[in-house]
C-alpha cells in the first residue's frame, strides 16, 4: 500500500471519527431532558443492576404516578420499576418489554391498558414518539418498533433513530443544564415513580356507573396485547394487565377489555372496580382526573403489593 493511500485512509478515518464524536456529542446536548412526563424513567432503567427487579411495570404516566415502587420495596420487599413513558400504548410496551429483557428477568410483568381504546394516530403523535424513543438505546428492537409504529415510513425511522435531526432547532433554547445534565446524577427518579402532592377532586365515570360508548378493540391493539402475552410465556413470566382508576374509563371499556382478556386467557385487573376495597378517595387521592397523587398511589400500591406478594410467593 502506497504512502498516499495510507494517508487517504487515515484522513478518511479521522473524518469519520471526528464526525461521529461531534454528532453524538451534539445529539446529547440538543435532545431535550424531560422532567415531568416519565421520559427520565427510561434513562434510569438502564442504570439498574442486571436482574435486580422482580416486577416490571410498563405503560403510561398513569402507572408512573399510580404505582409507588419504593413503597412496594419498603413494605412488601418487592423490587419493581415503572419502565414507562407518557402515552405509552401496547405496541410501545411490547418494545420496552423486549428492551427490558436484555438486562432484567422479572417474575411478573404488569402492563397498563389505559390507552387500548384510543385511535392509533392519536397515540403515535410526534410528541409521544419523542418520549418513547429519544432516550432508548440504538438496537434492532428500536428500529423494528419505529418501523412498525411509523407504518414503514423511512423518514420517521431515520429522525427518531438520530434525534439530533429532530431536535436540532433547540440550539436557540440551550441552557447550561443541557451541557451538564448527564454528568449530574446517576438516578433522577426512584424506581420510576413520580410523586405528586397535589389534591384535586375528580369524578370517575366508572364510579358514576356511566356505561359510556362501546368501543371495539382494534386488531392492531389485540395483536400487540397477544404478542406481549407470548413474550411473557416464552420467558416464563407472569403477566397482569392493569387499569389504574381515571376519569374517562367506563364500565363498557372494562367489560369489552375483560371479554377479550378472558377469551385469550390473559389476566386483567381493573382497579376502577376496586376503589372501595382500596379505600381510594376521589376527593383527595388524585392530582388531576387521569393521574393519582402520592396518597392514591400508596393505596394502589398497597393493594397491588398484597396481590403480588401472595402470587409470587
Amino acid at each position: 500500500m502506497s504512502k498516499k493511500t495510507i494517508k487517504h485512509i487515515l484522513k478518511a478515518a479521522a473524518f469519520i471519527t471526528v464526525f461521529c464524536i461531534l454528532f453524538l456529542g451534539l445529539q446529547q446536548i440538543l435532545v431535550p431532558k424531560y422532567r415531568s412526563d416519565g421520559t427520565l424513567n427510561t434513562s434510569d432503567f438502564f442504570q439498574l443492576e442486571e436482574n435486580s427487579i422482580d416486577v416490571l411495570l410498563l405503560g403510561s404516566s398513569q402507572i408512573v404516578c399510580g404505582v409507588d415502587t419504593p413503597r412496594l420495596k419498603q413494605y412488601y420487599g418487592i423490587s419493581a420499576f415503572n419502565f414507562c413513558t407518557s402515552g405509552q400504548f401496547p405496541e410501545i410496551e411490547e418494545y420496552y418489554l423486549k428492551e427490558a429483557l436484555k438486562t432484567q428477568s422479572p417474575r411478573l410483568v404488569i402492563c397498563d391498558v389505559s390507552s387500548v381504546f384510543m385511535p392509533f394516530e392519536k397515540l403515535a403523535n410526534k410528541q409521544a414518539m419523542t418520549y418513547f424513543y429519544t432516550t432508548m438505546p440504538f438496537d434492532r428492537y428500536k428500529l423494528e418498533s419505529l418501523y412498525n409504529v411509523s407504518n414503514g415510513d423511512p423518514g420517521t425511522v431515520f429522525m427518531y433513530t438520530f434525534p439530533l435531526f429532530l431536535f436540532s432547532s433547540r440550539w436557540k433554547e440551550l441552557s447550561t443544564d443541557d451541557l451538564t445534565f448527564y454528568t449530574k446524577y446517576k438516578f433522577y427518579t426512584v424506581n420510576g415513580f413520580l410523586r405528586r402532592d397535589i389534591k384535586t377532586p375528580v369524578t370517575l365515570a366508572f364510579v358514576e356507573e356511566a356505561d359510556g360508548e362501546i368501543y371495539e378493540l382494534s386488531d392492531r391493539m389485540k395483536d400487540s396485547l397477544n404478542r406481549i402475552s407470548e413474550i411473557c410465556d416464552e420467558n416464563g413470566m407472569e403477566l397482569l394487565f392493569l387499569k389504574i382508576p381515571s376519569d374517562e374509563w367506563t364500565r363498557n371499556d372494562s367489560r369489552v377489555l375483560n371479554e377479550f382478556m378472558t377469551e385469550n386467557g390473559m389476566e386483567f385487573l381493573d382497579l376502577s372496580d376496586k376503589i372501595t376495597e382500596m379505600g381510594l378517595d376521589t376527593e383527595h387521592d388524585f392530582f388531576e382526573p387521569t393521574h393519582l397523587n402520592l396518597y392514591g398511589a400508596a393505596k394502589v400500591s398497597d393493594y397491588l403489593g398484597e396481590i403480588i406478594e401472595e402470587n409470587l410467593n
Partner: peptide
C-alpha cells in the same frame, strides 16, 4: 493543513444539521 480543512468541513456539515430548517 488537513486539521484546518477537517474543521472547516465539520463546520459546514454541522451548520447544516443544527441550523438548517427542516422538519414538519
Amino acid at each position: 493543513p488537513y486539521p484546518i480543512r477537517l474543521a472547516f468541513y465539520m463546520l459546514l456539515i454541522f451548520s447544516l444539521i443544527v441550523f438548517g430548517s427542516y422538519g414538519g
